[in-house]
Nucleic acid binder design. Sequence first.
DNA 1: TCGTTCGATTAAAACGTTTCAAAGGAGCGG
DNA 2: CCGCTCCTTTGAAACGTTTTAATCGAACGA
Lengths: 340, 340
Amino acid sequence: MKDVAAAAGVSLGTVSNVLNRPDRVTASTREKVERAMADLGFIRNESARSLRSGRTRALAYVMLDAGNPFFTDVAQGIEHAAESADLSLFLCNSDSREAREATHLGHLEQQRVQGILITPVDPDTPLLDAIAQRGTPLVVVDRIRKGDQFCSVAVDDVLGGRIAVEHLIDRGHRRVAFVGGSLGVGQVADRYEGARLAWAAAGLPSDDLTLVAADSLTVASGRSAGERLAGIPSNRRPTAAVCANDLIALGLLQQATATGLRVPDDLAIVGYDDIEFAAAAAVPLTSVRQPRQELGRAAADLVLDEATNPEHRHQQVVFTPELVARASTLGTHPRVSLAD
Amino acid sequence: MKDVAAAAGVSLGTVSNVLNRPDRVTASTREKVERAMADLGFIRNESARSLRSGRTRALAYVMLDAGNPFFTDVAQGIEHAAESADLSLFLCNSDSREAREATHLGHLEQQRVQGILITPVDPDTPLLDAIAQRGTPLVVVDRIRKGDQFCSVAVDDVLGGRIAVEHLIDRGHRRVAFVGGSLGVGQVADRYEGARLAWAAAGLPSDDLTLVAADSLTVASGRSAGERLAGIPSNRRPTAAVCANDLIALGLLQQATATGLRVPDDLAIVGYDDIEFAAAAAVPLTSVRQPRQELGRAAADLVLDEATNPEHRHQQVVFTPELVARASTLGTHPRVSLAD
DNA sequence: TCGTTCGATTAAAACGTTTCAAAGGAGCGG
DNA sequence: CCGCTCCTTTGAAACGTTTTAATCGAACGA
């Protein structure tokens, strides 16, 4: 900036004014300065800027698993919000590792980002409280957290599990499997809980809603669950499966297809998340849709409110999931004959 | 830091020494200072740090489409490299929009990141040259760029197209469709070129390798291409399709399944990229695998070399793709009967 | 006892902005 | 022609570090 000032024959302060309050500067000088900036290829130094102003122009989202389209969609919602607020968005991936998450959080705090959005490995880690305490606006995404240390945005997973199972009951299923990861993950536990509630409400015997474990929420886990399911004699095998997420459902679908189980005739499948690949599966997947982009946007709005509004109050926003019924439970009626 | 110094009863410089050259400080004072830091919840200010040092501890990757698993895998490779170099990674998503890309690049230059990795919307945009010229290390990922303004890392797409088609010829296919987006995208043009080369090399009539347009590299485009393909009378319909990427292939697979075309018996399908969902499809997809993580890591290594090694020379790294054959071309032999 | 030497600590400058109070100048009315 | 006012421009301080040269003190040898 000093060089620009010299080149334009004005003072440093004037250059700053051209940048920050162009209206305070005469058209002619502004022009001179702008030309000088162009000639010199001047690029504002953001470090100096934020050092001086005490605030960066950046937001950050620490995602749990960048390989899961669900989170990239959430990120996109955040990105839009950031874009309209003219902020950069720092995307970090913890890859479900607490250590990596901690490293990222450390860096972000040092960067003094305006706010941190995070889908934490463990929503109850004291790390989050510490950050909030120290003053960085923080919003937990896709997890609920009792207490009022910070905001959170989530989807009602109990309800999601419920509507998935209700749909299957409606379609006449009386033996259903819940295929889920470890119940240690809050999400999964809630969805299972919802499933059981729906089952009980319909007055069905609780033994007929079986729990099929899967050690992680991945396609591979879904495949292995599929193997176990296929191994059950057909007169006792569940006629439908509710999966803890779409990745599992996709794996299950693949395994079912490979072993000759017809979907949905032999096994109906309901996924969870409604990621794009759910609709794109060979047998399009019925799934519980979460408003992913809205989730992101709402979280970003909250964090910005906390960052700018002194009267901010922490709140827990809960969205409502929605069932999207497709062929994996409805059947493949349109078995059109080929035009030829 | 001033507060820490006061609390510990030492000078500011000592605190800095504790942070940066702990060996120069007596154990007892170091301890005092560390306690003070803990008590006060001191967090280093990265802006000040990088202002003073003239360099940030961050790398950035501007990705073309965060929704495409291919790019998130590349990003993961970069992330690993960044992690080992103890740098933060700024992930940005241009979402294939030049304007957004430009905005991101602007921000990144202002942040003075150590290096920029990018999969650009248009590899020939002068923006990139300008950035390189101004001195920010820059590496183009997954695109080749003639000239030697900066490094690039890519995969040999002509070869990729070639091995895909060779595989189909080997399997006996004599009418093949190339389903691709606009040839304006360099990737697609190269893959098509490779396909034609293989076709010609086998001495097959060029009319029997048909080009099926798709306006974008998405699942939806694949579906619509599938409709067009299914509309062709079976005696003239291609018996196999090579797709410009896996998303298209997945859409095609879905549409084929919906209209009753059996894969691979009626239509064999080869994808491109070998994203995780290709293997996870109901009929696992044969695909041309690109070394995604390696791509990212190599790019990161190059950018770091440029940032730190004064003798750095720009180079264009080209990886070799590899065919992964699966059921979508090999057939679904394992149609196991059910244990029941 | 007095210099020396060496290690630990300190003081001060610098990084590139923003901001605020103050200075400068033009135009105007008296 | 003077004094005001109002708008533009300027100068200097401040943001929180890192770094370098300088200072201080203790231990040691002569």
